[in-house]
C-alpha cells in the first residue's frame, strides 16, 4: 500500500467513526435482557437443594393452597419431619416446569416431591391437571437422564391438616433414601 493511500484510509476511518457515534446515540435504546424474575425462582431452587454431605435432600414444590397450608399447620401443631426436607411454595402447582425439577437435581436434590391440590379442588381451575402432565413428562426425562422416575413424585391433597402432608413427605424421603444413588461422573 502506498503512503498516500494509507493516510486517506485513516481519515476515512475517522469520519466514519464520527458518523457511527452520532448514529449510535440515536439508535441506543435501553434494552436489557438481564435475568428476569424467572431467575429468582431458579436461584431459590439452587440454594434450597444444596445439602450437607450424606443428607438425602428432598425438595418439595408445594402449591400455595392446600399443601402449603397443610405444611404450615404441621408446624403449628408441632409435627416433626426430617430437616433434610425443603419446601418451596409455588403460587399454583401449574407453575411447575420440568426445568425447575431437573435443576433441583442438578443442585444436589435426591428426590423431588410435587405437592398439588386434588384436581377437582384446584383454585386455578386446571393448574393441578397441568401439573400432572408436567410431572409425567419430567419423570420420563428423569429416566432418560439416569436419575430415575421414582425420584419424582406427585401427591395431591384435599385437606389443610398437617398429618397427611408430613406422612407423604416422610414416606417419600425414606423411599428415596433407600434407592441406589444415580451416577454423576467427573
Amino acid at each position: 500500500m502506498s503512503p498516500k493511500k494509507k493516510t486517506s484510509r485513516r481519515t476515512r476511518g475517522a469520519t466514519a467513526t464520527a458518523t457511527r457515534k452520532r448514529r449510535m446515540n440515536k439508535a441506543s435504546r435501553k434494552k436489557t435482557a438481564k435475568r428476569a424474575a424467572r431467575a429468582s425462582t431458579k436461584e431459590t431452587v439452587r440454594s434450597a437443594a444444596k445439602k450437607p454431605k450424606g443428607a438425602t435432600r428432598i425438595i418439595v414444590f408445594a402449591c400455595s393452597w392446600y399443601p402449603s397450608i397443610a405444611a404450615d399447620n404441621a408446624g403449628v401443631v408441632g409435627l416433626e419431619y426430617s430437616a433434610d426436607v425443603r419446601i418451596l411454595t409455588l403460587a399454583c402447582a401449574g407453575r411447575l416446569t420440568p426445568s425447575l425439577v431437573l435443576d433441583a437435581f442438578g443442585a444436589g436434590a435426591a428426590g423431588v416431591l410435587v405437592a398439588a391440590c386434588k384436581p377437582e379442588l384446584c383454585h386455578h381451575v386446571n393448574g393441578s391437571s397441568i401439573c400432572e402432565r408436567t410431572v409425567a413428562e419430567t419423570r420420563e426425562l428423569a429416566e432418560l437422564l439416569g436419575i430415575g422416575a421414582e425420584r419424582v413424585l406427585l401427591e395431591t391433597f384435599d385437606s389443610e391438616k398437617g398429618e397427611p402432608f408430613v406422612e407423604s413427605v416422610e414416606s417419600f424421603r425414606k423411599r428415596v433414601g433407600k434407592l441406589k444413588p444415580f451416577v454423576v461422573e467427573q
Binding site: 431437573l102 435443576d103 442438578g106 439416569g146 444415580f182 461422573e185
Partner: peptide
C-alpha cells in the same frame, strides 16, 4: 436443564 445436567456429569 437437560444439557446442564449432562454437563454436570449425570450419566444418561
Amino acid at each position: 436443564s437437560i444439557m446442564e445436567l449432562q454437563a454436570k456429569g449425570f450419566r444418561p
